[in-house]
């Protein structure tokens, strides 16, 4: 794939470039930097990539001229404003996949409104990780796949709950109080964590039934 990255040589940009290389080692990776210093640094750090020096206006022209060849455009400079302008241009000229990396998660809606469907939020792991570690009971949304169809939730019960979910719709895994993991889960108790993976609606229905069963003591 021909992937064009406007990296800004930030920490996020560097990580993104390395990851894009990993995603398609055989592909063509073009890093664009706005200044002589940054493009020199990018050449040194990523010798396997093609590095271009272009300022904001030059890059917008470049996107327009080469849109028919670009497969993916990734914007990860340290300014959401410039990332937004580039993404908007890339979408307008028909680049098939446009991916901004947010600097401020509050700008997510702005990018969504412009028509970007894949938005990388580097801060997205803060909430689930902290909740998974610290929340005493209840549901925690841990992961949502790219097209929002597959989700992974954790559930920490306050008392023993019997699981009644149709086979095949969702996958259960439980981590017991002693740290061992169980794949065939029929019930889950306090101090244990239940992980539910599946299609979004099925997981929602499953957790609703778990909530409904909460409080019903399981005999034995």
């Amino acid at each position: 794939m021909r992937i064009v990255v406007f990296s800004g040589m930030t920490h996020t940009g560097g990580l993104a470039v390395a990851t894009l290389r990993e995603a398609d080692p055989e592909g063509k990776l073009i890093i664009v930097e706005p200044t002589v210093e940054k493009s020199a640094a990018a050449k040194k750090q990523f010798p396997w990539a093609e590095v271009l020096k272009k300022n904001v206006d030059e890059f917008i022209e470049y996107l327009k001229e080469t849109a028919q060849l670009i497969d993916v455009f990734v914007a990860c400079s340290d300014s959401d404003a410039v990332n937004y302008r580039f993404c908007k241009t890339a979408l307008d000229v028909g680049v098939p996949m446009v991916i901004p990396v947010l600097n401020n998660p509050l700008n997510r809606e702005l990018f969504q409104r412009s028509g970007v469907s894949i938005i990388v939020n580097p801060y997205a792991s803060i909430k689930p990780k902290l909740l998974e570690a610290l929340k005493a009971d209840g549901e925690i949304s841990l992961y949502e796949s790219l097209n929002s169809q597959i989700v992974l939730h954790a559930y920490k019960p306050t008392s023993r709950v019997k699981l009644e979910s149709p086979e095949g719709e969702v996958c259960f895994l439980a981590v017991k109080a002693d740290g061992s993991t169980v794949s065939k889960v029929r019930e889950v108790d306090k101090n244990e964590v239940l992980y539910v993976l599946g299609v979004k609606d099925a997981v929602r229905r499953c957790l609703e039934s778990v909530r409904a069963a909460r409080g019903k003591r399981v005999s034995g």
Binding site: D78, S79, D80, A81, Y84, N103, N104, L106, N107, L110
Partner: peptide, 16 residues
């Protein structure tokens, strides 16, 4: 747009 970096004082970030 919301400025990229929410720092105080962030006038320069906002202007950029």
């Amino acid at each position: 747009i919301i400025q990229s970096k929410l720092v105080y004082p962030g006038k320069g970030v906002a202007m950029r």
